[in-house]
């Protein structure tokens, strides 16, 4: 059974590392893995997307439309931008905080994060809105947003991987001095999705 996870956000938020962690974990489980990443000009504050695919038989490095099991969005508008990748009944884990582009400050492209969250609430059956800032504050580092969100995705169970599978990959992927805060953020994220305050389950809306 193939699993597809689309990760999206804004350049500099740590999207690529999160996608690598999923891919490493899947590879360790003996699955076939393909990913596709945004590298280059669009990294400079632009929209970034990583596709991670794992399973038995995978050809395309990109996830076909309407077939992502999980969308892991670091920013509400980026979740909406990529919503057509989500399969029917799929899970969306979305960071609450909006990142306003320069174009919004200049008044060329108005943007309201709340409007995006409303749209997601209407269209996504399994939506988890995560207060990533709060987890980062509690974990004690602004750099663990990616792992916190990943934790929530794992907690939802939709990736077919456990928080432990990812924890083992953290060792080699982050510097030793940051391993502990990352583990902490991963666990907090997972706990959120396993029914604690700070996220929204469909029935609580």
């Amino acid at each position: 059974m193939n699993k597809n996870c689309l990760l999206c956000g804004v350049g500099g938020q740590g999207v690529v590392l999160a996608s690598k962690l999923i891919a490493y974990a899947a590879l360790e489980k003996g699955l076939k893995v393909r990913t596709s990443e945004t590298i280059g000009m669009s990294q400079r504050g632009g929209s970034v997307v990583s596709h991670v695919r794992m399973g038995e038989e995978i050809y395309s490095p990109m996830i076909p439309m309407h077939s992502a099991d999980v969308i892991l969005a670091f920013e509400p508008a980026e979740a909406v931008r990529n919503l057509s990748y989500l399969k029917k009944g799929g899970v969306a884990v979305v960071n609450k905080k909006a990142v306003k582009p320069v174009t919004a400050a200049l008044g060329q492209s108005p943007y309201d994060g709340e409007e995006m969250l409303c749209c997601l609430r209407k269209q996504v059956e399994q939506l988890y809105v995560v207060d990533g800032e709060e987890i980062c504050r509690r974990a004690g580092s602004p750099k663990v947003l990616n792992v916190a969100l990943l934790g929530a995705a794992l907690g939802s169970g939709a990736l077919g991987l456990s928080p432990g599978d990812i924890e083992r990959q953290l060792e080699g992927a982050v510097k030793p001095q940051f391993a502990a805060v990352n583990r902490e953020a991963l666990r907090m994220g997972a706990a959120l999705a396993q029914n604690r305050p700070g996220y929204e389950r469909p029935e609580e809306r």
Binding site: Q43, R44, G45, G46, R81, L83, P101, T103, A104, P110
Partner: peptide, 20 residues
């Protein structure tokens, strides 16, 4: 045909790459 079906979404912010 399935791929054509998509819900309505609000106007998305434009995110051109910018100088850091």
């Amino acid at each position: 045909e399935e791929a054509d079906k998509a819900g309505e979404v609000p106007k998305l912010p434009v995110r051109p790459p910018v100088l850091c």
